[in-house]
Design a protein around this nucleic acid. Sequence first.
DNA 1: TTGCTTGTTTAGATCGATCTAAATTCGCCT
DNA 2: AGGCGAATTTAGATCGATCTAAACAAGCAA
Lengths: 337, 337
Amino acid sequence: MMERRVTLKDVARAAGVSRATASLVVRGSELVAEQTRKKVEQVIAELDYVPHSGAARLRGQKSRTIGVIIPNLVNTFFSEFVEGIEATLDTTGHLVMLASSRDDPERQAGLIRRLREHDAEGLILFPADGTPPETVLQLARSNLPVVQAMRHVGKGLTDFAGSDPVRAVRESVRHLSDLGHRRIAYVSLAGDTSTRTERLTSFDHHMQAMGLENVGIVEVPLAWDGSPQSAGLLLDLDPRPTAAICFNDILASGLLRGLYDRGLTPGRDLSVVGHDNLSFIDLGAPPRLTTVQVFPRQIGMKAAELLIRRLADPGAAPRAEIVPPLLRVRETTGRCD
Amino acid sequence: MMERRVTLKDVARAAGVSRATASLVVRGSELVAEQTRKKVEQVIAELDYVPHSGAARLRGQKSRTIGVIIPNLVNTFFSEFVEGIEATLDTTGHLVMLASSRDDPERQAGLIRRLREHDAEGLILFPADGTPPETVLQLARSNLPVVQAMRHVGKGLTDFAGSDPVRAVRESVRHLSDLGHRRIAYVSLAGDTSTRTERLTSFDHHMQAMGLENVGIVEVPLAWDGSPQSAGLLLDLDPRPTAAICFNDILASGLLRGLYDRGLTPGRDLSVVGHDNLSFIDLGAPPRLTTVQVFPRQIGMKAAELLIRRLADPGAAPRAEIVPPLLRVRETTGRCD
DNA sequence: TTGCTTGTTTAGATCGATCTAAATTCGCCT
DNA sequence: AGGCGAATTTAGATCGATCTAAACAAGCAA
């Protein structure tokens, strides 16, 4: 029934050489004679031999595998990030083990454990909402090379690749200020992440610095269909904002939808700024969303590069790579009179 | 420098028991006395012992790992699909190794090999554009449980989970026909996939069956920014179509954009039907896209279920699970007079 | 006491590939 | 022929966890 796995011994026997020689051929060593190599390679193909990586690892071989943990995959922001990682790690022959923490720190801890069991050489961690510092501390102690991305816990403990939330918010606020807006609200996700904290703090800070009025934070759940409700919440604020900055493009698009449902026009009745510059906002019906581009793919690549660097030099001091965000002014923001 | 890995032997020594007993504790066996278990578990926590899955696999243990290969991650269609897989496999404690073939069959072959080395218990394959039948034949021979999803190569050779392209096209055509459209074009992606072939064949078939005029196939590359050009191509067709069915929502949204850029209105000047029902089309400015919902998440779950079933019963006859697509009539299709 | 459960623990072999150190073959020179 | 170095090949130990079969301990009945 369940036929036995083809092992190196089988290959060796069939090719009339020793296991050691067969092993050398598999690993492409120079030491073996051309003729022998040919013979062995032929047998490998015939028997459909597949090396047992577990056995190899037992002798100290690398697993050529990197763990990647992300909170979820709901929008292309995450998938572009993962794509960037995958593309870069591919150049060094690493395979990605992708797992989703669903923004649950406990689940995340379990995933980390399993990735370690599978001998992942390193980990790229997009920390779950509410990740406790201990998780990162323990990782730092465990000798497993770790790069945090996008969000961070325990700043400076590990390498980090991300965007610049302060700058993103500053540019958004300044843009609205330049257009004459004075009362601005922020539409955020609920949760406890460094990104959220930094952006809200930064929002408040820049609003004050520019002498504008922060008329409130509106919170909505991260779900494609829940975001239009933000329109109602914003319009109920007192004083009523003339512009809103959104945590991401999904929330912003939802807000646009909510405005249209109420017969209002974005950019005229309420200016809207998004965040992320997801690909889809360039398509469909106008108006195009004014938003902050954050280059998740590049950040993924940076994260992978940091990890590769760290694998080569585990002792190096933690480094942070920031990909500066870029405001893309389009059609959902307009003058306020 | 590079301190040695903590092994079961270390745990055993520190806890004053044998390796065998320690192993039993790790695996949660009933055989060990409460007191001993406590002691060992404590030591495990203290030493931060992480089992070496490679060594375990050597003794015939399962890897609790499933390989998933997809063509890319460009849109949420793929990520929702992966999410469905991940959520279902999570219930059986399986970890996903995700790799992107980038629609390159050779790269895909390499990925399959690597997943086999890592002892993946099974594979969910969303075959790359142009995957040769040999790839699937070899997989079928190799004893590795495989489920193909969305697209398929070598029909009936493996389990399959997907949508129903014929039905999707039929409903789209019928809907347009009901609205009085007679000249319809199809906007497709270039490439060589079962999905594409089935949809184009089906389009032609149903157009004839309903006595309508297939005015042509327009092809565009799969890229977020390339799709608006389809508008120009469609308007140049002779005779000029009054409606277009698109391969997916990205192409459809691009087409909408192209129409607006030319001052035309979807649903009036040209009716547009999409495919996939990506989440974002419910957001942003109206009109909402009329499209065919295909439930990638459910398909992912079905695929994972098929795989789980096959792991339990490797000898079972290949099965196909079809999640019926659903036409969502919204605002980009209108009467034709 | 001895014998027999039942419950708990363990020594030792084993999985498949790799590595070291040593053996073997080959070509070529004296 | 014999000897030498280079090129190839190989026997055997080894990695860490698991499994088998057997040992051991404690409790109880006869």
